[in-house]
Design a binder for these strands. Structure first.
Length: 609
RNA sequence: GUGCCCGUAGCUCAGCUGGAUAGAGCACAAGCCUUCUAAGCUUGGGGUCGCAGGUUCGAAUCCUGCCGGGCACGCCA
């Protein structure tokens, strides 16, 4: 259900028919034949490059092919006009009746309109957010969160089977820092004066409740426990609490993941996990399910992944060259366990083990992606922040290596968000703990504005987020503009109830839609299914936001025509037939805007008050 | 120094995965309007698509080299 595909097929069929009578067209490769909407609407509804693309292969002039093709296409009565133009384009204009029929089809599909099967049920794992479990989310995380969540919605709409994943970085140094910070708050809760939070620990107030909770439950018990045991307890307890915070933050933006995957589990085998099973259970991670998938119960996932790479002869011990140009101060040659990332397009081979023998973050991430693949996700998407750009090549290299090229990883990098208040940039410093949290932003402007604005820009372009602008009720604010279009339609439909009680748009005679602006809105809506498909295939949810804005804009334009000419209003008193036809049109628009907003995760308001 | 991303109107950005005379909003200028929901409408000026080559019927889009900006750069996560 994508009219561009339908009519492209029509062109291909016509070409096949011509092959019977024109030997020079035989055996031509048709892949490059496209059908698209010309930029200039006066050129028609569609235009195909077939004649130009085939010219060389067939050894015919574009014009010659075009004339033949035009003749064939003219037999289809849905075309009002078929003509050759420019260097050999064939411009196709469909009849107004065809478009009215398209509107009827859109209405018949209702909320299923735009749903696509192009994903063919392919399983795709989308990993996004994956903020360290060391505190609440700040605005820096927000863009990736919204991007990933919307991409998931979009790909589901396009027929993919999506898993929304959060990778909990609950292993490594930052968890240790978290544990020590929480312990300090625990001592504070017991009445000790802890003074300033030392450099290197997390200063935020959000750890105070954690300290208090432990103090209330266990009293002073942990003061006398050996440090190792204490750290482990505080780490586990704090991570679980922090994940609760983070999940709440995400929920405020209507983001809910399907899977929370623990990094820490990747370092355990079936035996060593037993003493800390409570931790994983509290985290909401199903270890039974996890280990039931694993081939070798004696190996951790990291060991298994490294082993798998070793078997492919992709691991060696070596010394890396120092980076050319800027030499790190403390550089010294070191033998390391390295993965041959250069064989898969990376710039250097990458370390898998630290000098103390423990594995690197990269090694865990390899194991994690290995696990995704084994779960059946041959298509993986990672959403990272701009500062992780340098990580992309090694990760795609690792996926290619581990899956023998069967797995595909696309890493989407979200650029920074610049917060503006009254035109001034809001300064943030992580060190002082003075950062704006996600929750603060959502509480101030609401989830709809946050979500829409985060998507109203390509992911790889930086983004300005202006507190004043996103809550402004004006045309300058795209969130408002789109929601307002939807609300306006709802309002008209309510008013129509008064003018024509009990009306049914199902009985509307669409032939009464005659105005060119009305027909162009149908054309715009007819492009929606293709919009969903391309945006999903390209992993570019921002296209949906722009489309929604375009459609809203076209609708507002139609509305404004009614201001100038009362005959063009949606509700024309005393003319029930015309009114019904127009109500059918705007009901379809309402449906498409609502579909777009649903993908974006933005509420479709019934009224704007 | 190397890699990745970006460079499009005065500003903020789109550009449908190579198509025709490159678009929108803001700002600017002129005129109109006071509403089926007010948060307006119409029209106009404004461009070396960073620069230079290349690929081809055709390039903002693909390739190469420069210029400029951001990010990253052996065990952090």
């Amino acid at each position: 259900m994508n009219i561009f595909n339908d009519f492209r097929q029509e062109v291909l069929t016509a070409l096949e028919g011509l092959q019977a009578t024109e030997p020079r067209l035989k055996g031509c490769e048709m892949l490059a034949v496209t059908l698209e909407a010309p930029r200039d609407p006066s050129h028609g509804d569609f235009s195909t490059n077939a004649a130009m693309v085939l010219s060389k292969q067939a050894g015919m002039k574009p014009r010659e092919i075009a004339d033949l093709l035009c003749g064939a296409l003219r037999r289809d009565s849905r075309f009002e006009k078929v003509e050759v133009a420019g260097p050999g384009f064939i411009n196709l204009r469909l009849t107004a009746d065809f478009w009215r029929g398209a509107l009827a089809a859109i209405l018949a599909d209702a909320d299923q309109y735009g749903v696509s099967k192009i994903g063919a049920g392919i399983r795709v794992s989308i990993e996004y957010v994956s903020a360290n479990p060391t505190g609440p989310m700040h605005v820096g995380h927000t863009r990736g969160a919204v991007f990933g969540d919307t991409l998931a919605n979009l790909m589901e709409k396009a027929g993919y089977q999506v898993c929304r994943e959060y990778y909990i970085n609950d292993a490594g140094g930052q968890v240790d820092v978290l544990a020590r910070s929480a312990y300090l708050r625990y001592r504070e809760a017991l009445g000790e004066d802890i003074g300033e939070i030392p450099e290197g620990l997390y200063p935020g107030d959000y750890l105070k409740p954690v300290g208090r909770a432990i103090a209330a439950r266990d009293g002073g018990k942990w003061l006398s426990e050996p440090e190792e045991k204490r750290i482990e307890f505080f780490a586990n307890f704090a991570v679980i609490e922090m994940m609760k915070l983070i999940k709440d933050d995400l929920r405020s933006l209507n983001i809910v993941h399907d899977t929370f995957f623990s990094e820490r589990i990747l370092h355990h085998n079936a035996e060593s996990v037993k003493p800390i099973q409570d931790y994983f259970r509290d985290l909401g991670f199903d270890t039974d399910d996890y280990f039931s998938r694993r081939g070798d119960p004696d190996k951790s996932a990291v060991e298994a992944a490294v082993h798998a790479l070793k078997q492919k002869d992709l691991i060696y011990n070596g010394v890396l060259e120092p980076p050319k140009g800027k030499l790190p101060d403390d550089w010294e040659p070191r033998p390391q366990t390295l993965f041959r990332a250069t064989q898969f397009g990376d710039d250097v081979d990458r370390a898998l083990k630290k000098s103390d023998g423990s594995s690197t973050y990269f090694a865990s991430d390899i194991a994690y992606h290995h696990d995704k693949f084994r779960r059946g996700y041959s298509h993986m998407i990672d959403v990272f922040g701009a500062d992780h750009g340098g990580y992309v090549k090694r990760m795609t290299a690792a996926v290619a290596a581990l899956t023998g090229g069967k797995g595909v990883l696309d890493v989407k990098i979200c650029q920074l968000v610049r917060l503006l208040r009254n035109g001034e940039q809001v300064k943030m410093s992580k060190r002082s703990g003075n950062f704006v949290t996600l929750r603060e932003v959502v509480d101030e402007v609401g989830p709809d504005a946050v979500r829409f604005m985060m998507l109203y820009r390509k992911n790889d372009a930086p983004l300005d987020f202006d507190f004043a602008k996103v809550t402004e009720q004006s045309r300058d604010n795209p969130v408002f503009y789109v929601q307002y279009a939807h609300a306006r339609i709802c309002s008209v439909l309510r008013n129509a109830q008064d003018a024509f009680p009990g009306f049914l748009t199902e009985t509307a005679d669409l032939l009464l839609l005659r105005d060119e602006t009305e027909l162009s809105l149908i054309r715009l809506m007819a492009a929606w299914p293709r919009m969903v498909e391309t945006a999903a295939q390209m992993h570019e949810p921002h296209r949906i936001a722009f489309y929604a804005h375009d459609l809203a804009s076209a609708f507002h334009g139609l509305w404004n025509k009614g201001n100038d000419d009362p005959q063009l209003r949606f509700i024309v008193s005393g003319q029930k037939d015309v009114t019904l036809a127009r109500l059918a049109l705007i009901r379809a628009i309402k449906g498409v805007i609502a579909s777009a907003l649903a993908i974006l995760g933005v509420a479709a308001q019934e009224e704007m008050r």
